[in-house]
Design a protein around this nucleic acid. Structure first.
Lengths: 152, 152
DNA sequence: TCCGTTCAGTTGCAAAATGAAACCAAATGG
DNA sequence: CCATTTGGTTTCATTTTGCAACTGAACGGA
């Protein structure tokens, strides 16, 4: 990598006006999503991530750097001068609803009946309820009952 | 493309037990996410998608085929013997919560203060409220107050 | 202190995915 | 019937990904 490689980050957004597209630009790839997933589940070190995801190490290096550059992860020093570890920033933690909806969609549609899969549970061991968009009055919303208003 | 190309679909899952990973395998790339976004916003034809996303046409062909093969889109005939159009299946429409959380995260973290962006509104023109994970009792849940239980 | 190991990468190279552009055939429109 | 549009396919150059081998700084123990 050349000494001056401060560019690489955003060769401009795919679709600058759309929040979905911006988020997709930042974390819309398999490995970034799985890194965030694992960070939420307690992964902290390079090898934590490498072992859990099975990602190639050069790609992991690149992704950790990218997520850090974009403010989703930070590098923190462990208590006793030990090795650096990665931790989610507030913005990173705020991806929780995204990971949850990905998980819940997967549970509903990506498994055959009878296949087992991991489950997200709260402190009591209770399964986290399905997350569904709703209006201010609590009425369920779908893609048919909503629209995108451009540039507001 | 060779005449027999029925493989391509799933050279096995990245992480078969994890619903997040399965979903990421199916739609965890920028273009698939944007195609789903646009389908939810009314895109139906090849050129609808091409113009809205700006995706290369060969890639669009491949993605539409892939999403169709995985049951997120179907090809439907328009009323008057017109050209084929794509439409979201039930599974595809059920990605709505995923797109909404991606959008909302983007709104919160991917724009500078003062930058404008598109907004998702319901039939009344009211902005869709933030979607946040909550326990059965309605208490907010975060990545710190939940855990993944493997293979349940 | 010296030695071996683990960690966190880097480097080199092959394979796969992506993108731009040209090409093409079936529908549609006039 | 002809021109145009639509929905692709093909070709080729560029980028990204992945694998495997290598490196160098930190520990860890004898």
């Amino acid at each position: 990598m050349a000494p001056d490689d401060t560019d690489r980050q955003s060769p401009a957004w795919t679709d600058p006006d759309c929040p979905v597209a911006r988020t997709a630009d930042l974390v819309g790839d398999r490995w970034s999503l799985l890194i965030v997933r694992d960070a939420m589940d307690g992964a902290r070190s390079f090898t934590d991530f490498q072992q859990r995801t099975g990602i190639a190490r050069n790609i992991l290096t690149e992704r950790l750097r990218r997520l850090t550059a974009h403010g989703l992860l930070t590098q923190v020093d462990a208590p006793s001068g030990r090795r650096r570890r990665y931790a989610l920033t507030e913005a990173g933690k705020d991806l929780f609803p995204v990971i949850v909806t990905l998980r819940q969609w997967g549970e509903r549609h990506a498994f055959e009946a009878g296949e087992t899969h991991s489950v997200l549970v709260d402190g009591d061991g209770t399964r986290v309820p399905d997350l569904r968009p709703a209006g201010a009055d609590g009425s369920p919303l779908t893609s048919d009952t909503t629209t995108v208003r451009r540039r507001s």
